[in-house]
Amino acid sequence: MFETLHRYRYHYLMLLPGLILGGMFVFYPIFAACYYAMHDWSGFNSDKVFVGMGNFVKLFTDPIFWDAFQRALIFLLGTVPLQMTISLVLAVLLNNQLLKMSTYFRTMIFLPVVTPVAVIGIIWTFLLSPFNGPVNGLLLDLGLISRPVDFLGSTDTVMPSVIGVYVWKWLGITMIYWLAALQTVPDDVYDSAKLDRCRGAKLVWYIVLPIVLPFAVAITLISAVGALNVFPLIMSMTNGGPFFASEVMEIFIYRTAFATGDGSIPRLGYAAAAGVFFGFVVLSLTIGQAIATRRARAGAKEIRS
């Protein structure tokens, strides 16, 4: 073993920077979160009390936690299918090189992706404002509503509103994924399909989609993981309100850990337990992604051949 270590010493040496950085910024925080999750601790003082799985037990019986968890899932289910479908349609349209100004349209759709989330959040609060907000102005002018809608201030409309803004913001990146996937479809497959008089929707449905399916699985799961990480957007738009109506998991964790808001002590240990649980959910999605991608890839190979 030592001989092998010696022989590949430079390889191992090259691994060191990555290991050190990974240790500092990935592995240590994970272990620290697990450690804190087993303590009753405010984060302010040195009075850490070991409670074992106590925080998790409390968490699983906390209706506010489960409401936040449910909202995170609703957010995921509300955004991912919309994002996937709209971006696929756009990608299919813009994949046609002959389409005039396709590069311009791609750029315009991608622009919100590179705009800071907080800026997007603040601008949309103005756009959606019931007082002089252009969205309400348009709806009123069109006669679709008779009085302004308080999109972000009503418990009924806040989640659909934030979901809409999120989909708009991240549509561009999903479209780029789809475009990359579409460009892997070999030209001879298109040519063969044309010879068989397979065009339009048929071509997309029966030829293109099965080939890009492995990508679809990966894109779906990447989007799903993304949809669980919406902290800056929701903080800048609603702060989790009104009355918890847009409080998803990340906001719950943040509020519990830092922003109790009423002068009472924060619960860093409890928040860490919620964070660890949330981490496992995201990890499960990622594992699901790997398995599904492998299966879909095997299926796509058959179609290609």
Binding site: S42, G241, P242, F243, G261, D262, S264
Partner: peptide, 22 residues
Amino acid sequence: GAFQAPEVNFARTVQGLVAGEL
């Protein structure tokens, strides 16, 4: 130092009542 206010605290309760959620 030990006081932990209820999660649905005073301020949130009033907000919930005015918002019509409670």
